[in-house]
């Protein structure tokens, strides 16, 4: 295990009433990097995000470890050392306070500034995420979705956390503003010196904003490594199939795109073998009976039995 990891996740599993939602996830987040957690709906991305923050709901059985600089994340770390940017900005903001006021409260509680200095710092932080000075005292419901998410980004980064976890931070926004808001998120994390875990189903955003990525399928890691390598040449059959669905410059105009046959397995419906086996074009008998362990191939980790991976 590299000792330079900021966040170190080992064999993380989450069960709800005995039904596994996430199983055997391990990865590291290095200081200052953007790590994307990618997968389709139901792949276990949001469960992972919650587990990183130690925020799994009651009734969830969590095993494995999540260490921030070697120690488990506690409730006291949230909002200080580790911060969340959720999909729904309104859930992260108080409806009854103007945004500069609530940011100032957060600043005061952590940095112990005077009321005046905290408000000044809050307004500065709002300017840094691109909220115009005339709007800093607006209430959350008076702001557009994009502006609200910017305010949440200011809230998450103003206390200079070590890690920001963003759970589908732009999915609820107008597609035209998504890329700008992701840009602001990346910039503010970089300015705060924070690493970013970006949970998303948008592979375009991953290519534009992330350094390394974890691909999840049915609650299990399929591939983990540098974004440029994986996007250029995916090795796990699931990653390959997922990327094939996206048109590229070379795709003939108006041609039919490949799709994944069938549907992802329902939680708890996984057999003994590889979770992707029922939909995998390379599946062999072994794939249906034995779960593949992660192996290091070509600078990444791939969970797949395929022999040809060795010869990459």
């Amino acid at each position: 295990m590299p000792s330079d990891a900021l966040l170190s996740v080992r064999d993380l599993s989450v069960d709800f009433d005995g039904v596994p939602a996430l199983s055997g996830l391990s990865f590291d987040v290095r200081p200052g990097e953007v790590l994307a957690l990618v997968g389709e709906s139901g792949a276990g991305k949001s469960v992972t995000a919650r587990a990183l923050l130690g925020m799994c709901p009651r009734g969830a059985a969590v095993s494995g470890s999540v260490l921030l600089r070697g120690t488990p994340v506690t409730a006291a770390d949230r909002g200080r050392r580790i911060a969340l940017v959720p999909q729904d900005a309104l859930s992260a903001l108080s409806p009854v306070l103007p945004v500069d006021g609530q940011l100032a409260l957060a600043v005061r509680s952590v940095q112990g500034l005077s009321r005046r200095d905290a408000l000044a710092r809050a307004r500065e932080a709002l300017a840094e995420v691109g909220i115009p000075a005339a709007r800093v005292s607006a209430y959350p419901h008076e702001l557009s979705g994009g502006m609200r998410q910017r305010a949440v980004i200011a809230m998450a980064t103003v206390n200079r956390p070590e890690l920001v976890v963003a759970d589908e931070p732009t999915t609820a926004l107008d597609p035209g503003t998504r890329d700008k808001v992701l840009g602001v998120l990346g910039d503010r994390c970089a300015a705060a010196g924070a690493s970013l875990v970006l949970v998303t189903h948008d592979l375009g955003a991953v290519g534009a904003h992330a350094d390394r990525m974890v691909v999840l399928y049915a609650g299990r890691p399929a591939e983990y490594g540098p974004v440029d390598r994986i996007l250029r040449r995916p090795l796990a059959p699931y990653t390959e199939a997922l990327l094939a669905c996206l048109p590229t410059a070379g795709t003939p105009r108006k041609s039919r795109l490949p799709t994944l046959p069938g549907r992802p397995p329902a939680p708890g419906a996984l057999g003994a073998g590889c979770a992707f086996a029922p939909r995998c074009r390379y599946a062999t008998v072994r794939c249906h009976t034995e779960r593949p362990a992660a192996r290091s191939v070509d600078g990444r980790e791939v969970a797949c039995h395929l022999d040809h991976l060795e010869s990459v």
Binding site: E40, H201, L203, C245, L246
Partner: peptide
């Protein structure tokens, strides 16, 4: 709003 395979 859709995952890659549904999109395709």
């Amino acid at each position: 709003a859709l995952d890659p395979s549904m999109r395709a």
